[in-house]
Amino acid sequence: MIENRPIVTLFSHVVLILGVLLVAFPIWITFVAASHDAIRITQVPLPLLPGDQFFINLKTTLMKGGNGAAGRPIGLMLMNSLVMAMMISVGKIAVSLLSAFAIVYFRFPFRMGFFWMIFITLMLPVEVRILPTYEVVAQLGMLDTYWGLSIPLIASATATFMFRQTFLTIPDELLEAARIDGAGPMRFFFDILVPMSRTNIAALFVILFIYGWNQYLWPLLITTDQSMYTVVMGIKEMLEDAEQTPAWHIIMMTSLLAMLPPVLVVIFMQNLFVKGLTETEK
């Protein structure tokens, strides 16, 4: 506090509270809609206070899903989302750790060539190469599999860069000491580098989990088998059905379930999240 200006401070709190309300209002409406029954949710004006159907809707959503053709248990979709998010984040971290280790700790022909190959992937987001990537995955027989959902998204320039930065700050003396003690490269990697990078690994995991969980376009393209749908794309299908048979209480319950895991990760691992966000982007 630089100076005491109660009015300015009060005004600041008012602005911030308005901001929080603005940000939270859609979620409140979602929660309220998810706690009313099918009849109340079609009557104007919609309620602003929660009803008593929350757990009944939760059970219906998890076990049965929405109305009509889109009536599929959301539980399975949540499971698929979890598997995909875990495969993407663990895979990305493993692949990037290894290649950053090679680029920082070894001198070998084409080292810079590999580095630039990884760098260029920054410029090829999935959105600009959707059709040909789809064809590749189809030819490899990976449509409707967890592999197809995750592997094409695993290569990541940002994660490799971040680990490269981390490794460069680790003192050279550690490597010298390890070599004197007779440790080979992989021993050094597992016993010294990985443990020393664990905060960065955790921070990156938080970011990548959110990234993986929220994937939409890619699963939409490569899954046709309904048992492989993820919850984020399941919402879209329910919205289409909502044109004819609105089941907004179920749709909003699904939205709530679909946003819960990544939101909890952000709130409870806030410091890791902030660290991951600022370090991967810069």
Partner: peptide, 10 residues
């Protein structure tokens, strides 16, 4: 900060 974690489609 938490809306960052909400998927665009949601």
């Amino acid at each position: 900060i938490w809306p960052y974690a909400v998927a665009p489609v949601i």
